[in-house]
């Protein structure tokens, strides 16, 4: 019984949140990786693009709710998502047209596009604050739990409860759908293959008659979609706070690099590596051990490797370690 309790504790505090957070990071890292492979620069604006997507989702949710439409018990934001995806894509295409295109046409060095992306990041975060303000917003208007901890305890008779939030299951399901569609698109459709061909060997792709403009259009289409979904899911799971997305850039890049930048499967794996490391290192093992060893042997203190305040440092440490020890990442990616 004690062991089962210990497992329930781990599932509740590490597995479920880790999977959810990992999905959000994986979707973000996929967006970064796709821009990197096709357009050859690190897009630091991706975090803010996610924030932009989440913001449009909220604005549209407000409009939808104003008309009294809801799909309870699911949150209304699901209904808003398709429209906000379109808006985010349009925003990405506008940015490309007015910021990145110029340097692409001039054949500037990739690092210049990277710097442009930092500018886009600041601009976007400013735009978001003008449009929706810096305050904390909750989007989740649906049912909160699928299984609440109390109900779980009543059913199983365990001391530890496992709770599964609706937002968590939505995150996981939507992420799976998005990733499956993405891989289908890249591997099975003519357009997806032409994108891979373009990123593999640009000159040969041009010789084969693949058009740069089309590839770039579809790249932003995918990036905008992924950013909007990832941002909205993150906002749905936690709450929407414009500031937090700036801090998401680091774990997202860490995920993309750990997995091997330029490799979509790597980006997904990297997302989970980062999310689980963050949780495992900041988890307090005190209660977990109390189920497994006699109470007299239990060390004092919370048995936390690092305080949760240092969460952001973990992805940074992983990033540095990977860059030193295995710069190509888990799946052989391109060197930065």
């Amino acid at each position: 019984m004690e062991i089962i309790n210990a497992f329930a504790l781990i599932i509740n505090y590490i597995i479920i949140p880790g999977l959810t957070y990992g999905c959000q990071l994986a979707l973000g890292a996929l967006g970064v990786t796709i821009i990197y492979t096709v357009l050859r620069f690190s897009n630091f604006a991706h975090g803010e693009l996610m924030s932009f997507g989440a913001m449009t989702s909220i604005l549209i949710t407000w409009i939808i709710s104003y008309f009294g439409i809801s799909i309870s018990p699911l949150p209304t934001v699901i209904l808003a998502l398709p429209i906000s995806i379109l808006i985010t894509i349009s925003y990405c295409l506008l940015i490309d047209k007015y910021c990145f295109q110029y340097h692409r046409k001039k054949n500037s060095k990739n690092v210049i596009s990277l710097i442009v992306s930092i500018g886009v990041m600041f601009f976007t975060s400013g735009l978001i604050r003008v449009l929706i303000g810096p305050n904390d917003r909750t989007i989740n208007d649906g049912e909160r739990f699928i299984i609440s901890a109390r109900k779980f305890k009543e059913i199983t008779g365990l001391t530890e409860g496992i709770s599964l939030k609706l937002s968590q299951s939505i995150t996981i399901i939507v992420s799976i759908i998005a990733v499956v569609l993405l891989f289908w698109f890249l591997n099975k459709t003519k357009t997806g293959k032409s994108m891979r061909a373009y990123s593999d060997n640009k000159d040969l792709a041009l010789l084969s008659g693949i058009k740069t403009e089309n590839v770039i259009f579809y790249t932003w289409l995918i990036t905008g979609t992924l950013a909007c979904i990832a941002g909205t899911l993150y906002g749905l799971d936690k709450s929407y706070k414009p500031f937090t997305y700036l801090q998401l850039v680091l774990p997202i890049f860490a995920a993309a690099i750990v997995g091997g930048i330029g490799n979509p499967i790597g980006a997904i794996i990297g997302g989970f590596v980062i999310s689980f490391s963050e949780l495992l290192i900041t988890f307090s093992y005190n209660k977990f051990l109390s189920y497994l060893i006699p109470i007299n042997f239990l060390p004092e203190g919370s048995l936390q490797l690092l305080s949760t305040d240092y969460k952001i440092a973990i992805s940074f440490i992983i990033l540095v370690l990977v860059l030193i020890l295995k710069p190509t990442g888990i799946y052989k990616g391109k060197l930065l």
């Binding site: 003519k190 293959k193 032409s194 891979r196 061909a197 593999d200 060997n201 000159d203 040969l204 792709a205 084969s208 008659g209 693949i210």
Partner: peptide, 18 residues
């Protein structure tokens, strides 16, 4: 650099026929 290294043989040919 006259092939798409990371793509399958058949995909290479398909790209030729783009």
């Amino acid at each position: 650099n006259n092939i798409f290294q990371e793509m399958s043989v058949e995909e290479n040919l398909e790209m030729g026929a783009f």
